[in-house]
Design a protein around this nucleic acid. Sequence first.
DNA 1: CCGCTTGTCGCAAAGATCGGCAGGAAGCGA
DNA 2: TCGCTTCCTGCCGATCTTTGCGACAAGCGG
Lengths: 145, 145
Amino acid sequence: MTHHRMRWEERLWATGHRVTRQRSLILDAVCAGEGHTPLGEIYARVRRADRSIDRSTVYRALRLFVEVGLVVAADTGSGETSYEIKKPRPHHHLVCRGCGGEQEIGDDATAAMFDEVRRRHGFEIATDHLVLFGLCEACRCRAGP
Amino acid sequence: MTHHRMRWEERLWATGHRVTRQRSLILDAVCAGEGHTPLGEIYARVRRADRSIDRSTVYRALRLFVEVGLVVAADTGSGETSYEIKKPRPHHHLVCRGCGGEQEIGDDATAAMFDEVRRRHGFEIATDHLVLFGLCEACRCRAGP
DNA sequence: CCGCTTGTCGCAAAGATCGGCAGGAAGCGA
DNA sequence: TCGCTTCCTGCCGATCTTTGCGACAAGCGG
């Protein structure tokens, strides 16, 4: 399991929310696989553990987890939103429109940009997980200029 | 009207699509107001001009416009997607989670970041319109550290 | 351990977005 | 101008996501 029980329970508690069996199962489901998981798959995993949990509960729990910073959401343009347990170091995703492949990048590049926005516009960016679309090296060469 | 008739007709044409009355009305509706417009409002404007146009036609036309680069889409987290006619110079939006206010920023900051991503990962980012969430200066001072 | 308060859950229904299908029209060539 | 071909549209239903509501249970105080 990627998340530590104490950690997330305290986080919920500190933000004035309750720790429930459903939320525990849903967070387990987010961590069950590698990388980000589409909601449908998370729901399937949760149902495997407990048939009675409703879809809306999953949606609400995930929204809450994102709100309190336990999980990051990513709309990869596939029709359904994906979720991933938040890692200590923020990262972003590059999604290739040619082959559909994805790669993860660190937050070095964006950190500088966020700083500049803060200096020039006084705006503190909180978004810590971007999904950027474009063309990967292979597809770029294949397609030509 | 913000868009020039010739411009968009040629763009559709060049990408192998047809110029239709519906698409014309929908693009007019996108340009009718200031800044970006939520889909519901676009639909309302279109219906004011022609009762018979269907919602799915509006969705399909907007998706097409985005695809061929006539319009940019922005998910401002309000539940429905907003659209805006594409300006010659790309820009991004900062949405404050405190007051809900929005401001536009140029692409200077992101241009440097995109370059770095290309250099380091060989990935050419095509996304030209970001919506970044955070806290504006006023709300940041009000909330304190 | 018992009951209270209040946040949560399951359910149902609404809202937003997308996809299939058959009729209709844009744009081409004669 | 008249068809023809192909794409587009309107209609309907499917899918993804959110919301309102009454029942329920987490966490508190006794």
